[in-house]
């Protein structure tokens, strides 16, 4: 049976991993900090996937970001999705060459659909994850691009239909209002739109503890839950959450934890 996934998202900003709250970024630490506080290669064994987003506001250099990805993915044997600020095939290729298995796109989905089509023609639709940021205002879900700064002329439902026609691989649905709050996902919206999406749906924004992850995973149409909360899941937070989720009987992968013997 196809398993559901637990995804950790890392938000990268000018050399640092950050905690985002409603898209306001707070620096937390660099790659060394992440290694020290998360023991990353170890913790990766409790994740189904890793998403790394370049949210750099001042220097959005894809090549610097790609170099960081290369270091980050060393000895991490899980799928890596990376993106942020990709505007050309060359920039996407740079990420693939440095260890990304898929790329996450946002602004270009709306501004440059030709680039998206070209990416899909080259790398297949399963390689393109569509990041969708929305805010709720007077009961309407408004879609934003450019790191949450620019509102577009389609509402969430219209935009999801548009993305389906583009034939992107997956939807990464992020509520800006819930982002970083730790209060739980935007379940009202998720319940409302999940059935209308024929692509794998990753929900993000608001998870603060394993109960939120469980609540998200219990929704039939949700394929994966993501959290970018560096504080709430620090240390053994993620492995512990995974254990509780497995114990609750949810359908997620249960790997053989035995270390394999490697002869030198």
């Amino acid at each position: 049976m196809l398993r559901k996934r637990i995804i950790f998202s890392l938000i990268y900003n000018d050399g640092f991993f950050t905690q985002s709250r409603n898209f306001r970024l707070q620096k937390v630490g660099d790659l060394k900090w992440l290694e020290k506080n998360y023991g990353f290669q170890k913790i990766a064994f409790s994740l189904d996937e890793l998403i790394v987003v370049n949210a750099s506001r001042t220097n959005k250099s894809v090549s610097d970001f790609a170099s960081m990805i290369r270091l980050l993915v060393n000895d991490v044997f899980i799928p890596i999705c990376a993106g942020g600020g990709i505007r050309s095939m060359e920039e996407a290729e740079l990420l693939f060459k440095n260890g990304a298995d898929k790329i996450i796109m946002n602004t270009a989905l709306y501004k440059n659909p030709e680039l998206i089509k070209e990416l899909i023609r080259n790398y297949g639709s399963q390689s393109v994850v569509a990041s969708v940021d929305y805010k709720t205002s007077n009961g309407i879900n408004e879609v934003y691009i450019a790191d949450g700064t620019e509102k577009i002329d389609k509402n969430l439902e219209q935009y999801l239909e548009y993305l389906e026609l583009l034939d992107i691989g997956e939807i990464y649905l992020n509520s800006v209002d819930k982002d970083g709050t730790g209060f739980g996902y935007d379940f009202a919206t998720i319940h409302d739109i999940a059935k209308k999406i024929n692509k794998p749906l990753i929900i993000a924004g608001g998870a603060g503890n394993e109960k939120h992850l469980i609540e998200g995973l219990q929704i039939n149409e949700v394929s994966a839950v993501a959290t970018a909360n560096l504080f709430n899941f620090i240390g053994d937070g993620l492995p512990n959450a995974r254990e509780k989720i497995i114990a609750s009987g949810l359908n997620i992968a249960n790997w053989n934890p035995d270390q394999i013997s490697i002869e030198s």
Partner: peptide, 12 residues
């Protein structure tokens, strides 16, 4: 129809 494509994730 109704099947989510691509098939993404861990499967047995």
């Amino acid at each position: 129809s109704g099947l989510k494509v691509p098939h993404v994730g861990f499967n047995q």
